[in-house]
Write a protein that binds this DNA or RNA. Structure first.
Length: 219
DNA sequence: CTCCAGGGGGCCA
DNA sequence: TGGCCCCATGGA
């Protein structure tokens, strides 16, 4: 088992030099970032882009308008992102908290000391979505773990399974290896997703993978 | 046709 | 806790 934290620093350097800056999260506002985080749950970003574009056209990229409309109407507007009835309710759950408990002040909500606990309490926002919001909307240094990250760590030889139960375990690996830097965490997560999408898929393309020398078994 | 995507919640042992 | 099932569209 590889436990040398140097590997995770080497991985970042190699990914960064190969792929370059990713400038995540791609969103025009914090609200858009948060909606994107909910909409992309187990869903391709391509579909989410369509929905975000549609929400802007329908003038629904505001807390007030999202609060006003019915679940059914919102569900119709986000149909292309899948799980649309659930996600409509999840978005409403979030919006209702901001409107009712924070007077619609999203910045005030994001500056809460116990932001993670407040986020995780909202039905439809789990660990990954909460961490994504804290990193990319509140700009606080948490390392986001997703299925790609778990898969990459596993294939590199770490004692990690592609299962949410190893979320905290995977997070600790990065915390032990890296300095607490918001920009670094933002960029690293984006690079891991990119690597996962292009080369470290379920059926991997190790032959062309830019970091295959860090992997335990190359297929 | 099948597989899977920038997850989360409910239920049950 | 952890395993299983459900949610659902759209692209490859």
């Amino acid at each position: 088992m590889i436990t040398d934290s140097l590997d995770l620093r080497v991985l970042y350097r190699k990914l960064y030099s190969y792929f370059g800056e990713q400038h995540w999260w791609p969103a025009d506002s914090k609200l858009e970032m948060i909606l994107g985080a909910i909409l992309t749950q187990n869903t391709s970003w391509k579909n989410v882009e369509k929905v975000i574009k549609n929400l802007k056209i329908k003038n629904l990229m505001t807390l007030e308008n999202l609060f006003k409309i019915s679940d059914e109407y919102l569900a119709e507007q986000i149909r292309a992102s899948g799980f649309y009835r659930q996600k409509a309710r999840r978005i409403k759950n979030f919006v209702e908290i901001i409107i009712r408990d924070f007077k619609g002040d999203l910045e005030l909500f994001l500056s809460q000391e116990d932001l993670y606990e407040k986020l995780i309490r909202i039905s439809g926002i789990g660990r990954e979505t909460a961490d994504s919001i804290i990193l990319y909307a509140a700009d606080k240094p948490v390392f986001v773990i997703d299925i790609y990250t778990l898969r990459i760590l596993k294939r590199m030889g770490y004692d990690i399974e592609e299962n949410k139960k190893d979320y905290t375990k995977a997070q600790k690996l990065f915390y032990r290896s890296l300095k607490n830097d918001v920009s670094l965490f933002k960029e690293y997560h984006a690079l891991l997703v990119l690597l996962g999408k292009q080369y470290c898929k379920k059926s991997p393309d190790c032959k062309h993978c830019p970091v295959q020398e860090l992997c335990k078994k190359v297929i």
